[in-house]
């Protein structure tokens, strides 16, 4: 069971959204990390088969997904970033509609819907209109529809957006359990969401994969590059341009605790700390790039 992306590119008139990406995705949880505009959603859509690559091939189990056609979609569960629904749908009506589109029989659909409503704690809201639900509950409904056909491949685009911390943890648990003999590909810009559950990660920037490997292997790259220091607030300005700040925390005594990434200690009194995947993310994505994306 493997989903292969071989030299996949997507070119538009004014930009290259995905540039010669090669990935060999086997069972387990894969994280696809990157800032907004990195090309993750474009890549995800090509992996789902709803967007045709400009060049390259995507194969499942050695066969082109375009050759497989509906047989590939039969194995797939997909939750897009923009999750829509018809306004008159209640949760149950929506799941019935989606189960029919996934080709389930009436009996199979009924059983599966009951099981998912229970597992994702949607039983109480099953009769309510989706448009009246909170963002987090809507996301759970979206997850439920992705799991209806018991897919071999689950592809989720920003699944945790709008979820509170408790719901994020719950979702991670569901995914970890689900991924045992399946392929799960999660695209996100929130590193902490997948750091603890992803077996492998690919980091995307400007349409390319800039880092690839297991979480521990990627974190190892940051050994000796992550520092922690305390410095007066009024001196922070001069260090900001020299280092990539991961975290700032103002303390009571008008000093700041700062966690930063740099090839060497740049702030006096710095000590090395254990790196995380988020540190690698900050290392790869410069502060000004992130500021641009956030409109700062």
């Amino acid at each position: 069971m493997a989903l292969e992306l071989i030299d996949v590119s997507k070119r538009y008139r004014d930009k290259v959204a995905v540039d010669r990406v090669c990935l060999n995705i086997d069972s387990g949880i894969w994280g696809l990390l990157g800032a907004n505009g990195a090309g993750k959603t474009t890549l995800i859509r090509m992996a789902v088969g709803i967007l045709k690559p400009s060049s390259g091939r995507i194969r499942y189990d050695g066969i082109d997904i375009s050759t497989l056609g509906s047989a590939y979609r039969n194995l797939l569960g997909y939750l897009p970033q923009t999750f829509g629904f018809y306004p008159e749908f209640t949760v149950r009506a929506y799941l019935e509609y989606m189960s029919a589109l996934k080709g389930l029989s009436r009996t199979a659909a009924k059983g599966k819907i009951e099981a998912l409503l229970h597992e994702l704690q949607l039983e109480e809201v099953q009769g309510r209109h989706i448009r009246k639900l909170s963002g987090g509950v809507k996301r759970r409904v979206g997850m439920a529809q992705a799991l209806l056909n018991d897919p071999d491949i689950l592809i989720l685009d920003e699944p945790t957006s709008g979820l509170d911390p408790g719901e994020r943890i719950r979702l991670r648990q569901i995914l970890a359990e689900f991924a045992r003999h399946r392929i799960v590909l999660i695209s996100t810009h929130i590193v902490s969401d997948i750091e603890s559950i992803a077996n492998q990660n690919a980091i995307m920037k400007d349409g390319r994969i800039v880092a690839l490997g297991t979480t521990s292997a990627l974190i190892e790259k940051m050994d000796g590059k992550v520092w922690q220091a305390t410095c007066p607030i009024d001196q922070m300005a001069k260090y900001k341009s020299r280092v990539r700040i991961v975290n700032l925390h103002a303390k009571d005594d008008s000093t700041t605790a700062v966690r930063y990434v740099c090839s060497e200690a740049a702030i006096p009194g710095s000590s090395r700390v254990q790196p995380t995947l988020e540190d690698l993310y900050f290392w790869l994505f410069r502060e000004e790039d992130r500021a641009e994306e956030n409109g700062i």
């Binding site: 088969g49 709803i50 509906s70 997909y78 939750l79 897009p80 829509g84 029919a100 589109l101 996934k102």
Partner: peptide, 9 residues
Amino acid sequence: EIEMSTMVS
């Protein structure tokens, strides 16, 4: 987008 990704074409 979701409808495109389902088994029924």
